[in-house]
Design a binder for these strands. Structure first.
Lengths: 186, 186
DNA sequence: ATAGTATTGTAACGAACGTTAGATAGAGAG
DNA sequence: CTCTCTATCTAACGTTCGTTACAATACTAT
């Protein structure tokens, strides 16, 4: 009965430790201590340290991203992006840490080559996806691709502020900044 | 005679290692191996591992920032910021790695509490500094503070692209994006 | 109740870590 | 030539790391 619990608890604590100390700074012993279990328990549920780290990125992080994207409903385009960013303010602590860890790997500040390649693949999908969302609203804008690129760059910093630096970004400020970039569209 | 050389060589190699493997992933032994000197040499010039890391951030990184800022001459405001970002493309490999390491600490992905506080202090100076540069150009803009905030956020991602992700950003793209945010000013 | 499987624990392995004690080599001064 | 001081080395210390062999317990099905 405790299987699922224990496995999840280990992962939760691991997310915390990897976040604070990075991959190399995190020790299996410290994770076990915080989970309040013996050291080999972690090897019972995860093949090794790297396996534990990989599961957090490959499964938890990308599932979180998908969940986040699926919430998008297109009415007003500025409200769409404002909501997208603002929702991050209210992510659970666990999700925020998973997100933060994902960004850390995305910036190749942690993880290995294999995870970096996965991130690169994912990054390539970003521009086309936003182009799909925005193209109909940018008919009368000449440099539409540049606007989309700028928006993506802005979103990246806003996300980092909330998730990485752990700041609270007021919805009104988010809306202001997105409006400045998308000013004159639709 | 070789004193200055050896000390600098150790620091250069250390920057490389801290960049790739992070603080905890970097070992004094591997640094010594790449410098091609014995292990205690590093302790001859630096008090310990943390002292070596601290010198890179406290001295090298902040001196690089100051050097970068001092190059700014205000003629056209869009050209000013375009040049500021574009110059990063042509930073030496060493400076780029120092910059990258600084950003890593800035995002609290590495380093300790003490270095984080230094970064926080520095971050507080960013908005006022840009306000000083931009205020005269934003007389006829209503939400001037929001524009400055947006610009700072955009700059942050552009810098990260070049320095952290090690991409080359064409000058024209940089100018385009900055123009979109500063559109309508002056 | 018991056999068998799933879960957890104790204790240890070898390797690698940060750091230091102490020896050695080389150059300049007298 | 010898003394001194700086720069460098060899060798080791104690600690902690990831990982595993193996014993003990708890649960489940018969």
């Amino acid at each position: 009965m405790a299987e699922k619990d224990m496995r999840e608890r280990i992962k939760e604590v691991a997310v915390e430790h990897f976040n604070i100390n990075g991959y190399h700074g995190t020790t299996i012993r410290n994770i076990a201590k915080d989970v309040d279990c013996s050291l080999p328990m972690i090897y019972y549920y995860y093949h090794n340290k790297k396996d534990l780290f990989d599961e957090i990125i490959k499964k938890e992080f990308f599932e979180l991203l998908k969940r986040q994207v699926s919430l998008l409903r297109t009415d007003n385009i500025i409200e769409l992006y404002t909501k997208f960013v603002n929702d991050l303010n209210f992510l659970s602590d666990y999700d925020k840490k998973v997100y933060r860890l994902g960004i850390k790997v995305y910036l190749s500040f942690d993880g290995d080559e294999e995870l970096m390649e996965i991130m690169d693949e994912w990054e390539k999908t970003i521009l086309p996806r936003h182009y799909q969302i925005l193209k109909s609203h940018l008919k009368n804008v000449d440099n539409d691709i540049a606007v989309i690129r700028t928006l993506i760059h802005l979103l990246e910093t806003l996300i980092e502020s909330i998730v990485v630096k752990n700041r609270y970004l007021p919805e009104e400020e988010i809306r202001e900044e997105i409006s400045i970039v998308l000013r004159g569209c639709e």
